[in-house]
Nucleic acid binder design. Structure first.
Lengths: 306, 306
DNA sequence: TGGTGCTATAGGTGAAACCTATTGCCTATA
DNA sequence: TATAGGCAATAGGTTTCACCTATAGCACCA
């Protein structure tokens, strides 16, 4: 018993005539006779009582036709659903994002993506760099917006945005009026406010200090870059922050932002599991990201070192 | 997309390993690879994301697996149902019967049949000979218990019971004490009580009179042979009745029964549509009829004259 | 670096679904 | 009563395709 035979039976039940049914099924009449006989043999029941000039279902045939029609319907629905997925009229996408990109990048991207693919359900997972790496490597997200460097070797990435890292200081800070770039080495002894462990930007901060040969004096740790900035504005210390989070002057609790002499940058990347199939929906999301994310670069795929 | 491929996908989803899944499916591993690729091509979606050492469903795959499992289940149920029908663990049977046989034959047969095939649902249709002929010829009953002669040429029949036709007279009738057979010709001028038109036994009555060269004086017509007998017992007239309906002496309203000199008989037959498939259930019912119907003869199929 | 385990590809084989042509049956019409 | 037309079943040949074995190619592990 296969779907083709079921289709044949249902059509024959509709037409009650082998020749006409065969025609609708785009096969020759003998093929229909053969297939029906074969099916009846296999099932051990006669499905149609037939003479030279009448074809009508037996009781078993009636039962078969009814159930077969339901099954064929379900198959058709399945086929339709697969087609919808293929055509991206439907889909599901789980995107991992750092809180920073969630607040500053995705708000530009999601509305556009939603407008283009209204039936693709996007789920956003916000977490720390390290957690997101785990989730993406484990397939719990389709892709993630992360910043380099990545720790997990099973991730592939491609750069999305390269943005400058700047220094935030309190308005009354001794450097607040500085017009030229600040050397990191000048910050020796300053009270630093940094992100908590697991957050990618914490490592960037510490690496900058390390490069400059200073040991940062950490006076506060927060899980939230916005809190960090507010604490800086309140005079509790200084912090490195990525360009995109900078608050407009005049906003309550806005620090003063200074460029660093070395103009260091960090790179935001689109990371996905290496070797894993990227769904059409995921590829479309990446494309939308490139088009609409502020400061997004043209694509040039990279790969994490093994 | 066919059921085989769906089965493959479901099994592969269970095993998450081509080689093991292929083994369970009793095919070689390359066949599974090929079939899956083919299906994915047809659907236009990747169902499994696979590398050399991992196989896992994509989102589309997850959807497919879920629905395919439901469909395969329905197919399995259908197969089971057909098997039940084939094995007569289930079935449906519509039996036509005259009121007489319904009252006097089937009560012996139905309990036995029910005990043998408890899951075969038997529907009884009681009607006149002519209506039953129509129903059976039109396929609304699988078989019918009728008496000869049959009018419809599209029916086949085989004799079941040959029973004597006797004369019922009121207890005070002039013939009530007769010990020998009564000649039909003696009944000239007697008031006759007969069945209504459409009932087979009415024709038998009239034919008997015709043969004997008398014209019956009909004083009552009833649709019910029991009413006829009661009317006879009440002294309203005389009637021919089939042997099987004879009431035991001493019963209220019992007529006196006399044999006829010519010992005429009528033949009860099992009629079904000529050329039409007799279901297993129908054949089983006929067999049970032969075994359990009182006075049933051994089979010897006949055919209605065209 | 070679061994192991895995999926994909290549090439060949056999079953089976399909086709055309025909038979055999029934019905309707001259 | 013969005959033509419509129908399903059968016969015989062709092609498609699911399957097989063998092997390639890749990733991981010792």
């Amino acid at each position: 018993m296969d779907l083709r035979q079921m289709q044949y039976v249902v059509q024959l039940a509709k037409e009650r005539n082998f020749s006409r049914a065969a025609e609708k099924l785009h096969i020759a009449q003998p093929s229909l006779s053969q297939q029906l006989s074969k099916l009846e043999n296999e099932l051990g029941v006669l499905l149609f009582s037939r003479t030279t000039n009448s074809v009508e279902p037996t009781h078993a045939g009636t039962v078969f036709i009814e159930k077969a029609a339901v099954i064929l319907d379900a198959v058709e629905q399945l086929r339709q659903e697969m087609d919808d997925l293929a055509q991206m009229r439907k889909g599901r996408l789980i995107v991992g994002s750092l809180p920073i990109t969630g607040a500053h990048v995705l708000p530009h991207v999601l509305p556009v993506f939603r407008a283009r693919y209204p039936e693709i359900e996007v789920t956003l997972v916000e977490d720390t760099t390290s957690r997101l790496e785990q989730l993406t490597a484990g397939g719990q997200t389709d892709l993630s917006l992360l910043s380099l460097p990545l720790g997990d070797p099973s991730l592939t990435w491609e750069p999305l945005i390269e943005e400058e890292i700047i220094l935030a200081v309190p308005p009354r800070h001794r450097l607040a009026g500085r017009t030229g770039g600040v050397e990191v080495a000048e910050l020796s002894g300053e009270p630093f406010i940094v992100l908590k462990k697991g957050q990618g930007f914490r490592k960037i901060t510490l690496d900058l200090c390390l490069e400059a040969g200073i040991e940062p004096r950490i006076v506060f740790e927060s899980g939230n870059i916005e809190t960090v900035q507010s604490l800086v504005a309140a005079g509790m210390g200084i912090a490195f922050v990525p360009q995109m989070v900078a608050r407009a002057p005049g906003t309550p609790f806005s620090p003063v932002y200074l460029r660093l002499a070395s103009a260091p940058t960090r790179t935001l990347v689109i990371a996905s599991r290496s070797g894993r199939y990227l769904s059409k929906a995921a590829r479309a999301f990446i494309e939308t990201l490139r088009e609409t994310a502020p400061g997004a670069a043209t694509p040039s795929p990279g790969k994490s070192g093994g």
